[in-house]
Simulated assay, not measured.
Amino acid sequence: MSFKIPDAGSAPRYTGIRTFARAPHVTSAEGADVAVVGVPFDTATSMRPGARFGPAGIRDASLLLRPWNPAQGVDVFGSLSIADLGDLETTPGNASRTADQIAAQLEPVLRAGAVPLTLGGDHSIVLGELRAHAAVHGPVAVVLLDAHADTWEQYYGERYFHGTPFKRALEEGLIDPARSLLAGMRGSLYASTDLDEPRSWGFEIVPCDELRTWTPAEYASRVAARVGDGPAFLSFDIDCIDPAFAPATGTPEVCGLLPHEAIGFVRALRGMAFTGYDLVEVAPAYDTNAQTTALLAANIAYEFLTLTALCRG
């Protein structure tokens, strides 16, 4: 079985049920190269709520996507069997239980041979994702583009929060910090040691100001050298982008990447086979009327699909 995107020449892109890029909605990942899932959970945020509506917003903006990616020279939709499995079950207000639910629902997707593309949701959801990936692949490298390292210990006494998932994942043995590269960090911190501590655990952390001095080719080379031959997971927080271009997010930080810079870094990862991707923290209530944040998020997710298409084509 192969899942294909409808022909926009016969079915206008603004018609039909809102799935990612109008991919068929199915309940099983069998036969899919990529399985899109939404995780509408945002009650582990420390500032603005609203990312529970991120999956819907990204799906809506994704209707504009077309099959051919000219920058990468590949027919993305023609090269892949893409299915949208809808949204995973979550428990509002309970990030710990939601992580368990995500892991239980995502593991069968991975065991079916599909690469999950997860639309968040706040960043706490990545813990459940990483549990599923580690169950199938063993500890994975994390390639992160984010304004925050998300390696804090707790918020308000809560250890399962959108600023803590990578520390929890490290403690659970789900990720390999020595093979991970976290980039794009910027903004004020709680203490001077906030980034030094995760570095001491083995993470490579690249602040946004340093990242902007790298070419996409240099970024890709550094990621490849860091990750090596083992499994790797790519996580993208939309707050990596400057809020002038992506205002609809829970914890915006000024002086972020420009859209073309971020997409250039993602495109440069051509040739890397990731076990999965996520795109988190889109909160449509804070978007412009033109859906600028959601549109950018949909196109970044499209670049993730492209990476898999290039590896499987």
Results as ranks from 00 to 15, higher is better:
Gly163Asp: 04
Thr292Lys: 07
Glu30Trp: 05
Thr306His: 09
Ala149Gln: 00
Trp214Glu: 15
Ala298Leu: 07
Gly313Asn: 06
Phe166Ser: 10
Ser192Tyr: 14
Ala246Ile: 01
Leu189Thr: 13
Glu153Pro: 08
Arg222Ile: 14
Asp287Glu: 09
Thr98Phe: 02
Asp209Tyr: 14
Ala224His: 13
Phe236Thr: 12
Pro55Tyr: 01
Pro231Asn: 03
Ile125Asp: 00
Tyr156Met: 14
Thr19Leu: 11
Arg52Ala: 15
Ala273Glu: 15
Thr91Arg: 12
Ala95Thr: 04
Phe53Val: 07
Glu153Lys: 08
Glu197Ile: 15
Glu107Ala: 11
Val280Trp: 04
Ala23Lys: 03
Gln154Thr: 15
Ser180Val: 03
Ser124Thr: 14
Ala112Met: 10
Pro116Arg: 02
Thr293Ala: 08
Gly157Met: 10
Ile238Glu: 06
Gly16Pro: 04
Pro165Tyr: 01
Gly78Ala: 15
Val109Met: 11
Glu204Lys: 08
Ser79Ile: 03
Phe265Ser: 12
Ser96Glu: 15
Asp237Val: 14
Ala220Thr: 13
Ile58Ala: 09
Pro92Ser: 11
Asn94Trp: 07
Ala29Gln: 07
Ala112Leu: 14
Gly86Ala: 05
Leu181Glu: 11
Ala56Trp: 01
Thr164Asn: 06
Cys311Ser: 10
His260Asn: 07
Leu195Met: 15
Ala262Gln: 08
Gly230Ala: 14
Gln154Asn: 13
Thr90Tyr: 00
Ala29His: 09
Gly78Cys: 06
Gly38His: 05
Val223Leu: 12
Leu182Arg: 00
Gly157Val: 06
Arg267Gln: 15
Asp146Thr: 06
Met47Val: 12
Leu295Asp: 10
Leu257Gln: 03
Arg179Trp: 06
Glu281Asp: 14
Pro108Gly: 11
Thr193Cys: 13
Gly250Asp: 12
Ala298His: 06
Leu80Ala: 04
Thr151Trp: 01
Glu281Gly: 12
Asn289Asp: 10
Ala29Pro: 02
Thr251Glu: 04
Thr27Cys: 09
Ser10Thr: 08
Tyr286His: 07
Thr98Leu: 01
Glu218Thr: 13
Pro165Glu: 04
Val143Trp: 04
Glu261Trp: 07
Ala134Arg: 00
Pro243Tyr: 07
Phe161Tyr: 12
Arg270Asn: 09
Ala244Trp: 09
Arg159His: 15
Thr45Trp: 02
Asp209Phe: 11
Gly138Ser: 12
Met272Cys: 08
Ala262Asp: 10
Leu106Ala: 07
Arg159Glu: 13
Gly120Arg: 07
Tyr190His: 14
Ile102Pro: 13
Leu269Ile: 07
Val254Asp: 09
Phe245Gly: 14
Pro12Trp: 00
Ser81Gly: 13
Leu88Thr: 05
Tyr156Ser: 15
Ile205Ala: 08
Thr118Pro: 10
Asn94Ala: 10
Gly73Pro: 04
Gly128His: 00
Asp87Asn: 11
Asp7Lys: 00
Gly50Trp: 03
